[in-house]
Design a protein around this nucleic acid. Sequence first.
DNA 1: CTGGGCATCT
DNA 2: AGATGCC
Length: 730
Amino acid sequence: MGNSEDELEEDDTEWRSSFLDPAPLSPAAPAPAAAPGPSLNKSSAGTSAQRVILHFDLDCFYAQVEMIRNPALREVPLGIQQKYIIVTCNYVARELGLTKLMSVTDAKEKCPQLVLVKGEDLTHYREMSYKVTELLMSYCPLVERLGFDENFMDATEMVERRLTQAPDLNNFSFTGHIYNHVSANVKASDHPRLALGSHIAAELREAIHSKLGLTGCAGIATNKLLAKLVSGTFKPNQQTTLLEENLCDIMGCLSSLRKVPGIGHQTAKRLQALGLVSVQDLQRFPLNDLVREFGGPSAQRLKNLAIGVDDSPVTPTGAPQSLSDEDSFKKMSSTKDVLQKIQQLLSSLVERMNKDGRQPQTFRLTIRRYSKTNKLFGRESRQCPIPSHIGQKIPSGRSDDAVLQLVPLAMKLFHKMVDSNTSFHLTLINVCFSNLQTRGAAVSGKGSITSFFTHGTSPRKTQTSSSQSQQNDSSQSADSQCMDHQFSVHNMVIQHTSQMTVTTKSPDSYEAALHGSKWKQSSVVAVKDAPLQKGCSAARSDFDEASNTVTQRLPQKFDPEVFKLLPEDIQVELLSPAYVNSFPSTSTSSSAPTTVPDVPHTPKAPSPQPSQPFTENIKGAVNDLDPSCSTTTVNHQRPLATSGFLVKEEGRLSFLGSSDCKFPGNVDPEVFSELPPDVQRELMSEWKQQKPMLKTLSSKKPGKRLMTKDRKAAGKGGQENSLFKYFKPS
DNA sequence: CTGGGCATCT
DNA sequence: AGATGCC
């Protein structure tokens, strides 16, 4: 049987057990201690004892975010609408029979008084989502995101720490539900780790609620699969612990294989073709036969999933590895519309990319063609490297230039897929930046820190005059450090205006952009002769008349041919100073006034608690939650090391224990020590998380190493925080 | 009347 | 580059 070199570890037991295969389940794995019964004991992987994995799942996440933005929505049946689908709805609506992923027509029919809020712009959801992850990571860095509304946490270490410090495990009990048990009847001393996990989960849920105003469920178990499965047992806003002895129960009661995370539509179909429908079917199915169909590793993994075994680690997610923006529609069939849509998507995406601070090296364009039969899987994409002179503009703030130069790039890719001579019918366009590179050079990093998630309300004062010396002095030690990065918004503007130079000729002609590079560029001639739309003609005349002026205002590498193709309003916008500042105004990212029937949208008045700048919130968090983390305060008493706060080992970054937290090199210890304790706390956790765009943590070129994991660890960070303002002289 | 992301693996 | 999976 093809047992590949991967998947080892747990396989030792699982693999063996698979020989006894036909046995329903209950492998021959010796349970460690307690847990008699037919509990499947995974682990036994030598090193790791029992893990304690937490799974957090926010209740109807999008709806909660909208209800925070507009509290009036709390009392009405609320649906979040994307195109013609209700992607989620609040619990008021659910009581009226609504479910997720219901069509708007059905929903309205079932519930005429349903209030709808458009949810196609994910900005607010994304921001809130990362706040949740951030908050969790401030307690324990081992947090893995799953979508926008779920997070895994490996709380094993936290639990072990509490175990050693917990004086009394006796008068101690579980918090929340216990799967298939009455909580009061279960002794925590029989399951000390899971019991402690249940308390940690409860505390974290409470933190999420008090600091961010969000409710959610949690599952506590010994692996990710089980934690996720059990977390939804009681909803909403409750938590459930799964004891090992109930493993069979929870797996067995799944109504179909599709319910197993990791078994999607396609896999379920293939399994069904083998005659497998229930989880038990899969448990009993001979591994050999499964291998034939899926190959060794996948077969073994499926087998494991069926019996509740999942040794996959909680892999810290960190900053995203790609940023994309897309829109779907019923029909798009003209190149001009495609160009406009791409421009719109790129504007939004580039702005997001700019806030991220990293520099994309790859661009990808994805389309979906209309097809009556199979609409779902008809995605095609083309990608290409982003010339560095373009990519550099994104993090540097000249994002308008970047967009203008990316548009022809995107169109080139488009024409690799679509022959615009023949008719076409698209239903989706997606633009994506990937291969995100942390910017290396600190340059003259006046770090005005524009928070990635928390939306640095306004361009900071840029009072970096003296704080800058602080930073520059110590920071550049060895590895470069975190605060080098961004230019302030102020700088962006300056640079934009000062950037204007005379246009030179562009590599891409109008024709090239429209029809693909193969069509050679007769450039200007072709443009003039082409029967352009009115808007374009008008624009052209403007262009001609004021040719010099306009040209001078255009960024250097800008392609005038492409520019001319843009609708007038877009041209005007691109040339307008406002374009630089409010780039997204044309795009989806700026909050399109969501149409809320019946309910006046109150833009302000976010609920009192949640929208705090995150600074005051963390206060006491660790003290309350984890004694060993807090050990008194962060004040003084710290060695104040100057070196990094991360250690690199075996190709991946590890967080130092919280008690060993060190300062980034550019932090003045004295300044730090005078900060309020809660602020110190927050900063410490932030450094531990390595949030922002700490650029180059990669001093070396790790040839290839363990790609994914490495990149994840190294690329972590991403957002930044407004906290550093506390270091500025007030 | 089927969304808008993200990730991983091949 | 595509497929698949998850939310």
